[in-house]
């Protein structure tokens, strides 16, 4: 069901027929999709759809029963520096003696054995990375004391400092207020564009991503539909994916996926965001992106 199977794009990520069983239940059924450098993709699906499982498979934290995962055309090794990962729940003790810059530095060489030799170059790299995610202000604060949005920035810097080709983020917006969430999304879109890396971001609500998302990987019933937003978020495509009729409604620039047979909403609309004029659902990182 993937939008295009062309491998000519120089894919940074390719899943080919990936199937996964967990606890005797099939979670993913022959999942295939690709991402190219610079893609900003949303991994969309309701709770329990299998988004985290897909990300863990890509990271090599879990083995698929069938199929393969190619990053930059190669199978994942155990030590993979070309994929950065920000898990959903990273709970850091407020008392932990760990500054934001320490956590970012651990992204550079946290797996290395032996004492760390401090160098100007390392420090400079860390400073640059903190600057790039707009986290320089709280570089010396304890990570555990930072707000959710600030911690996300530090974790993004941690994941990006080893210069991966692909960044995976698991539900980064789940615990953020709308405004901080929007800031994170804008930051990621900018990074994907500037550093020419692919970003795959999971979310149960696609609406905050619509203005910047190039591609959608929609997960339901263990299968995915992938392509551009316009290709995937359509009544026919999603009805086929869900295996029952659903309606894709566009209201006020927001997309709602509604079960066709009754009125139960898959995505409940929230109040329109103040100060954010209705963004077009079609927006492919429109014109002057901040």
């Amino acid at each position: 069901m993937s939008g295009d199977e062309t491998t000519l794009r120089g894919d940074v990520l390719a899943l080919e027929g990936v199937s996964v069983w967990l606890g005797g239940r099939q979670i993913l059924d022959e999942v295939s999709f690709t991402l190219a450098p610079g893609d900003f993709a949303g991994l969309i699906g309701s709770n329990g759809a299998g988004k985290t499982t897909i990300l863990r498979i890509i990271m090599g934290l879990q083995e698929p029963a069938e199929g393969k995962v190619l990053v930059d055309g190669r199978r994942l090794g155990r030590r993979n520096r070309s994929v950065g990962y920000v898990p959903q729940k990273v709970l850091i003790d407020p008392d932990a003696p760990l500054r934001a810059r320490d956590l970012v530095a651990l992204g550079l060489d946290g797996e290395r054995v032996g004492p760390r030799i401090p160098s100007r170059r390392r420090r400079q790299l860390v400073d640059e990375m903190l600057e790039a995610v707009d986290a320089a202000r709280f570089a010396d604060a304890r990570v555990g004391n930072l707000s959710g949005g600030e911690q996300q920035r530090v974790l993004i810097a941690h994941a990006l400092i080893s210069r991966p080709r692909l960044l995976l983020m698991d539900e980064p917006l789940a615990n953020l207020d709308i405004r901080s969430g929007q800031e994170i999304v804008d930051l990621l879109a900018r990074i994907a564009c500037e550093q020419h890396i692919a970003v795959l971001l999971s979310a149960h609500d696609m609406n905050p991503l619509l203005p910047v998302m190039d591609r959608v990987v929609y997960v339901a019933g263990g299968r995915v539909a992938a392509g551009t937003t316009n290709e995937v978020v359509r009544t026919e495509v999603l009805s086929k994916l869900y295996g029952h009729p659903v309606n894709v409604l566009r209201v006020d620039g927001r997309v709602l996926v509604v079960s066709g047979s009754d009125v139960s909403l898959e995505a409940v609309p929230r109040q329109p965001q103040p100060g954010r004029p209705a963004a077009e659902a079609t927006g492919r990182r429109g014109g002057g992106d901040v």
């Binding site: 898990p87 651990l106 060489d109 054995v113 941690h158």
Partner: peptide, 23 residues
Amino acid sequence: LALLYRPLLLSSVSAELAAARGI
């Protein structure tokens, strides 16, 4: 302790982050 310092620190902060780096 000195030898394992960095991996130990990272895995103490978050096992998931450590595993993601191949620790």
